[in-house]
């Protein structure tokens, strides 16, 4: 495989789910190991990038190819309600799960009604 193809860039498919506590982001990054993954937070921008592992160059011959190695990279703009200090990331089975908690003051508060 040529180096040019190895450098191919992909935007990973991402799901964003909201809950009361914050936002969950799920990103498909097949072939990217935990070590090859980088998550950067630059003020309001969250940048996720990673490189899918290149298979060792052996005498393997491709019969059919539908996916290839490449670089994943994607930028997200994060709103002020996100508590930047407590962003959690978990990587499993080629899926990156990010949890972006909402700041305590924006979480819905339940007001107790008293009977007097």
């Amino acid at each position: 495989m040529s180096t040019e193809r190895n450098m191919e860039k992909f935007s990973p498919a991402t799901d964003i789910v909201e809950s009361e506590q914050g936002f969950y982001m799920y990103m498909d990054l097949p072939g990217v190991s935990k070590e090859a993954l980088a998550i950067d937070l630059d003020e309001n921008t969250l940048i996720v990038s990673g490189k899918a592992a290149v298979t060792p160059d052996t005498d393997e011959k491709y019969i059919d190819q539908e996916f290839c190695e490449g670089e994943y990279s994607r930028k997200f703009t994060i709103a002020d309600v996100v508590d930047r200090e407590n962003i959690k990331a978990n990587h499993k089975n080629g899926v990156l799960e990010l949890f972006l908690p909402k700041k305590a003051e924006v979480q819905p508060l339940k007001i107790q009604i008293t009977n007097e």
């Binding site: 072939g31 011959k61 491709y62 019969i63 539908e66 996916f67 080629g94």
Partner: peptide, 26 residues
């Protein structure tokens, strides 16, 4: 890549084996 069926497959062979690889994140 976008139009391909799911999951995308790579089929590779060497002298002794055939490898079928699929992207199945999650």
């Amino acid at each position: 890549r976008r139009k391909a069926s799911y999951p995308p497959l790579n089929i590779v062979e060497d002298k002794n084996n055939i490898y079928v690889r699929a992207e199945v994140p999650g």
